[in-house]
């Protein structure tokens, strides 16, 4: 029944992706820098290559990357390539393709930040709902203020403190990386445990910092919802506290939270830079950071493109799911 609606939303998603790709193409070229020449000059100044052949090499590489063609041709090529999922080669790590590098980094970021975002959302939302509930256990009142205090601290700062405490002072957790160097990558118990051990520090710093925010927002919504007439009537209906709490209060209070969750999930890719750089996590944020340092045009473009697709897709999913969550929003055209 909602096929038209879904198709329309998907069309909007595609337009966003196309606009993003276009901006992504033109913006870096406005700088007038020649990334290939820069790269070669840099290497030359480090004493690797002879100065004489540089102009020659720039030409060859530019040909190779298609940078010698007119801008419009470049743009059309680029759009065609993007449509085929080809994001060109990395300039700094030449034979490797950008798609390869992103594909390698993406699971780390989605795993770490996706999981921590979902966990903080679930935990924070439930705690926030309980906080507003008169029948909630007393200890919650003592549990929450520290989380609110943590919420005010940037998570990289908390991350550094935790790192110092747990990895440096007590040495119970690894200090750096997504897995132990030299570990054999694969779906073995040993490797999975190793990855989990490495994920504890960054996860902890993100979750501890964000739970308070989710709880705060949910508590506010919950208080409003509990004042609604249908909650009073639910009580007059003699419903169990649990039914009223879950089905009448939380079910309604969670609607705005869901919007926030979709946006938060869309932003995990762009929010990954700081965590990943601090904890040396091999994800997309670290990749972007490195690419900016190396002036690696195509990788930067590729990552930014991925971020935009991620955000667009999260919004698309939210649009599709929202009518199901809140029947007052319908598929039908008004």
């Amino acid at each position: 029944m909602g096929l038209y609606f879904v198709a329309k939303r998907f069309g909007v998603f595609l337009v966003i992706v196309w606009l993003a790709a276009t901006l992504n193409f033109f913006l870096p070229r406005l700088s007038g820098d020649d990334p290939v020449a820069n790269k070669l000059m840099e290497q030359a100044s480090l004493g690797g290559y002879a100065q004489a052949g540089i102009a020659e090499m720039v030409k060859v590489y530019n040909q190779h990357f298609g940078l010698d063609k007119p801008l419009l041709t470049q743009y059309l090529n680029y759009v065609g390539n993007v449509a085929h999922g080809d994001l060109n080669y990395s300039i700094a790590n030449y034979p490797r393709t950008v798609v390869d590098m992103i594909a390698e980094a993406l699971p780390w970021t989605v795993g770490l930040l996706g999981m921590t975002t979902l966990v903080s959302f679930a935990l924070g939302t439930f705690l926030g709902a309980l906080l507003a509930w008169p029948g909630a256990p007393r200890w919650l009142q003592w549990f929450m203020p520290p989380l609110w205090a943590l919420h005010a601290i940037p998570f990289f700062l908390l991350g550094l403190v935790l790192m110092w405490l747990l990895a440096f002072q007590f040495q119970i957790l690894p200090i750096f990386g997504g897995h132990s160097p030299g570990a054999k990558v694969g779906l073995t118990v040993g490797f999975v445990l190793d990855v989990l051990r490495h994920a504890v520090l960054p996860s902890l710093s993100i979750v501890l910092v964000s739970v308070g925010g989710w709880a705060l927002a949910m508590r506010g919504m919950m208080v409003t919802t509990m004042g609604e007439d249908y909650v009073t009537f639910a009580e007059a209906k003699g419903l169990r506290s649990l039914t009223i709490f879950m089905r009448y209060c939380m079910r309604n209070a969670i609607l705005p939270q869901t919007t926030a969750l979709a946006l938060a999930l869309g932003q995990i890719l762009s929010g990954a830079v700081l965590v990943e750089v601090i904890f040396g996590y091999p994800g997309i944020g670290a990749l972007l950071f490195q690419a900016i340092q190396e002036n690696d045009f195509f990788v930067i473009q590729g990552v930014v493109f991925t971020v935009i697709v991620g955000l667009g897709f999260a919004t698309f999913l939210l649009d599709i799911l929202y009518p199901w969550l809140d029947p007052r929003i319908t598929y039908r055209r008004s």
């Binding site: 609604e228 007439d229 249908y230 009073t232 009537f233 639910a234 007059a236 089905r247 009448y248 079910r251 309604n252 609607l255 969550l325 809140d326 029947p327 007052r328």
Partner: peptide
């Protein structure tokens, strides 16, 4: 004892 709520109120859960 059952209650019939005020007519001006939103006494029904909007999402159920």
């Amino acid at each position: 004892i059952a209650m019939v709520p005020q007519g001006s109120m939103n006494s029904l859960n909007p999402v159920v």
